[in-house]
């Protein structure tokens, strides 16, 4: 497999990683995703990794990079469905991915992005609520 498909659902781009990531695949995904965010003007990116069993520091950094790039392009990144073993590995590697939001599954991840977008759209009233 050369490319990981990127699906667009409303204003959200969805990527599910279902194969073991190797470095070239990760770089291709980063490039494709950047192009798609810029091209579609998507406001959210959901990366679903429940099938990902093996991670290394490179994949961890790739996730961090994607989140940083998305933020620059005004999109929110959520990583969903990380396995316990993967989470432990990333923590042991010292990659705590503090710049990424996480969710337990796709449903929660989408809800998280939608909440965020609704908040952004309604920024003024949200600020007013906060001031109360």
């Amino acid at each position: 497999m050369d490319r990981i498909p990127i699906l667009k659902l409303g204003g959200v781009l969805i990527v599910t990683i279902q194969v073991d990531m190797h470095d070239r695949l990760a770089l291709a995904l980063e490039e494709d995703l950047t192009a798609r965010i810029a091209g579609t003007g998507a406001r959210g990116v959901l990366i679903e990794i429940s099938a990902l069993e093996i991670v290394d520091s490179f994949i961890g950094r790739m996730l961090d990079n994607i989140a940083a790039i998305s933020r620059v392009l005004d999109a929110e990144t959520v990583v969903a469905g990380m396995r316990p073993a993967v989470a432990i590995t990333l923590v042991e590697l010292g990659l705590e991915l503090t710049g990424i939001r996480t969710a337990l599954n796709v449903e929660r991840g989408l809800a998280m992005i939608r909440d965020r977008l609704a908040e952004d759209d309604d920024l003024e009233s949200a600020r007013a609520r906060h001031d109360d």
């Binding site: 989470a87 990333l90 599954n105 929660r108």
Partner: peptide, 8 residues
């Protein structure tokens, strides 16, 4: 940190 990575 590991729990946060899983979304909790």
């Amino acid at each position: 940190a590991a729990a946060r990575l899983m979304g909790a």
